[in-house]
Design a binder for these strands. Structure first.
Lengths: 343, 343
DNA sequence: AGTTAAAATGACAACGCTGTCAATGTTCTA
DNA sequence: TAGAACATTGACAGCGTTGTCATTTTAACT
C-alpha cells in the first residue's frame, strides 16, 4: 500500500540514494539511470514522504505564508498563487494569519518556525513593511520574500516583489484629469501603510504634472474599510460639497464602495455629479452600482512570483528560474463609476 | 539553538520517552514528573518537531482543509476557524483548494494524502456532498468531517456538522410574510447543491404554513453569483413586474447584491417597492445600498467545531470534548433591504 | 594497454520523535 | 511483610528520507 523510496530502488535495481538523487534532480546521475528510476517512480506512483524529507534534509519542503491583511479577496488570491507554485514544486504551505497589534507576534513566529522547520516565508503587506519583523527574520536566518507596495530599489532585488502603486495611482488620477476633473479628492488608507503613501504620491505627482495645485483638505485618511469610505466621502463632500469636488479616488475598492454608499445617502448621482474610482479590482468592484473604475492588481500572479523567488533563494543554484518578474504595476480598468465632469 | 526532546529530557533528568509522554498528555505520568518536565519544556521553550512526530508516530499532526467554494469570505472564515483550533492543539493545516469539475481530483487527493500523511480532512460544501469523494475517503481509511447544509440525521452525528439552511430560510421567509409580502420570489443557487434545496424547502414550508400557494414561476435558478442575481431579478421582475413580486429572497448575499443592482437598473426602489434579502451575512451584505437583511452564518464557529470533531475522531479517547455542537442554524439579521409591503 | 582523474553509485548513519516491551517503583492484599 | 497487581519509567528500534564518504565505473589521458 505505502510506497517508499526503497520500493522504488528495488524495482529500479539501484540504491535508495540514487532514487533520492533522481527525485531531487541532483547532478551526477546517468541519463539511463535517471529514466529507469523515473519509470519505477511512475509505475509505483511513488510520492516522497514530506515528513521524512523535512526531518532528514538540511532544507525543508515547507514554506509559510504570513498575512495580517483583513481583505479576504486579497488573502485568497495570494494564497492560491503561492499554493499553485508549491504544488508544482512539491512544497507544502503553512498558513499563518496574524495580527500585528497582538504583540506576541514574535513568539508566534518562532513557534511556527520551530514546529515546522520552514524553508522560507512569503510576507504580504502591510506586515511585510515592518522592519522589526524583517530584522527578526534576518537574525534567525530565515529566508523570506516580501511583497511590498512601492517602486523598486536597486537593493533587495532578490528579496522583494514590488507592486507599483505609485504608477497606478498616477494613472488613475491622469484618467480623471483627462475627463476634465480638477478638484479631485483622495480617500486614503492609514498613512502608516506604504501602499497609502505610494498611492498618495502618485496622485499628487499626476496633479502636479497637470499643474493642479495640491490641497490637503482634499485628502481624507481612513483605514481601507467600507465604513471609513463612507465617513471620508461625507467629510469631503460635506454639506453641499463646498470644495466643489467632482471626483473621488478611493484608496481601495472598499473605500470606493463606501463612497458610493455615502453618495447615495447624500443624493449624489454617480458618475454624473461625481466620479469615484477604486483600487485593486477586487470582485466587488464589479458588484457595486455603478461598477467601479479601478486599478487591476494581479495578486495571483504576484504571489506566484513571490513563491518562485522564495524557491530560488531556498534552493540556490538548483533552480534555473532566471526570469522572475519582481515589479508589477496595476493597470487601469475603466468602468461606469467615472465619467466626464459636468462642473 | 535548536532544542530537541533530548535536551528537555536531560534538563528534567528523565528519559526522552517520559518527555514524549508528557507532551502527548499520555496517562501514567506522575504529577510530580509531569511538572518537572513541563518546567524544562518551558525554560527551554521547547517545540516538538512536527516532521519527526509525523514520521515516527502512527497518527499524524497534520490535517487538511479541502474546499471548492469560490466565495473568498466563506473560505477565509472556514480556514481561520480550523486554523485557530489547529494552533491550540499543535496541529498543522494543509490547504487544498480544488475544482470538482477538474476530474483528476481523486489523484490529487491521493497525492496530497501520501505526501503529508494526514490525520484527517475537513470537507466544506459543496464538495462535502459528493458521495464519490466520501466513498473514496472511506475506502482509503481517511478520517474526515463534513460541513453540510441540511437538517441533522440520526446517523453521521460523529462525522458531520450541519448548517440548518432550511430553518434559516424559513425564518427569512416568515420575516417577509410578517411584513405583509405575499408574492415572494426566490433567486436560488444551483439545485445540485444541498444548500439550494434546503433553502428552497424552508422557503416553501414557510409559505405553506401561511397558506400561500407556491408558484414555480417565482423561483429562478442561478449559480450563487452576483451576475446570476442580476439575471434572476431581471427575469422575475421582467417588464413592469407582471407577477407582482414585492419581495425577493436571495439564495446568498451575492445574488441579493445582484438583485439590488438589477433593481437599480430597472428603477425599483428598495425597500419601498421591493424587499430583498440575502443569506450568509458575509461582509458585503453590509456594503450594499441599502444594507442587506440576511441570515447570519457563524462560519468561524462552525469550522472550529468541525476541527474539534476531527481531532476527537483522530485521537479517539484521548480527547474529552464531549460537548461539540454539530448543528448550527443561521439567524435572521434585519437591515434596511426589507420593509413592509406597499402593494 | 596502463594509469589517472572524474563521474556515478552505494553503504550507512543521522534527523527527532513515538511505539514496544522490558525494568523498576509503588500500592495493596492477605 | 511477602507477594501480587498495577503504575511509572526507560532502552532501543524504527519511521522514510538525505548527507557523508567510500567504492565502483567510466572517460581521458600517456
Amino acid at each position: 500500500m505505502k510506497v517508499t523510496i526503497n520500493d522504488v530502488a528495488k524495482l529500479a535495481g539501484v540504491s535508495m540514494k540514487t532514487v533520492s538523487r533522481v527525485i531531487n534532480k541532483e547532478p551526477s546521475v546517468r541519463k539511463k539511470t535517471y529514466d529507469i528510476v523515473m519509470d519505477a517512480v511512475n509505475t509505483l506512483n511513488y510520492q516522497p514522504n514530506l515528513a521524512a524529507r523535512n526531518l532528514a534534509g538540511t532544507s525543508s519542503f515547507t514554506v509559510g505564508l504570513v498575512y495580517d491583511n483583513p481583505n479576504a479577496y486579497y488573502v485568497i488570491d495570494m494564497q492560491n498563487g503561492v499554493l499553485s507554485r508549491c504544488k508544482e514544486e512539491g512544497y507544502e504551505l503553512v498558513i499563518h494569519p496574524c495580527n500585528y497589534l497582538d504583540g506576541n507576534m514574535e513568539e508566534d513566529f518562532k513557534t511556527m518556525i520551530k514546529r515546522s522547520r520552514l524553508a522560507g516565508l512569503v510576507l504580504t503587506p502591510p506586515l511585510s513593511e515592518q522592519n522589526s519583523i524583517i530584522d527578526m527574520l534576518d537574525e534567525m536566518g530565515i529566508h523570506y520574500v516580501r511583497v511590498l507596495s512601492g517602486r523598486p530599489t536597486e537593493e533587495n532585488q532578490d528579496t522583494c516583489i514590488y507592486v507599483n502603486d505609485y504608477a497606478a495611482a498616477y494613472e488613475i488620477t491622469a484618467h480623471l484629469l483627462s475627463l476634465g476633473h480638477k478638484n479631485i479628492g483622495f480617500l486614503c488608507g492609514d498613512k502608516e501603510h506604504k501602499s497609502t503613501t505610494e498611492r498618495l504620491e502618485g496622485y499628487q505627482a499626476a496633479l502636479k504634472d497637470h499643474s493642479i495645485p495640491l490641497h490637503d483638505a482634499l485628502i481624507y485618511e481612513g483605514q481601507y474599510s467600507f465604513e471609513s469610505g463612507v465617513e471620508g466621502a461625507k467629510a469631503l463632500l460635506g454639506e453641499n460639497n463646498p470644495k466643489n469636488i467632482t471626483a473621488l479616488l478611493g484608496g481601495n475598492d472598499e473605500m470606493a464602495a463606501g463612497a458610493l454608499f455615502a453618495s447615495r445617502l447624500m443624493g449624489i448621482e454617480i458618475p454624473q455629479q461625481l466620479s469615484i474610482t477604486g483600487f485593486e479590482d477586487s470582485p466587488f468592484s464589479r458588484q457595486t452600482w455603478p461598477k467601479l473604475t479601478t486599478a487591476h492588481q494581479a495578486n495571483d500572479v504576484i504571489s506566484q512570483h513571490a513563491a518562485r523567488l522564495l524557491f530560488r533563494k531556498t534552493r540556490g543554484a538548483r533552480n534555473q528560474d532566471k526570469d522572475i518578474i519582481t515589479t508589477f504595476t496595476p493597470s487601469l480598468v475603466v468602468r461606469e463609476s467615472s465619467g466626464p465632469t459636468s462642473a
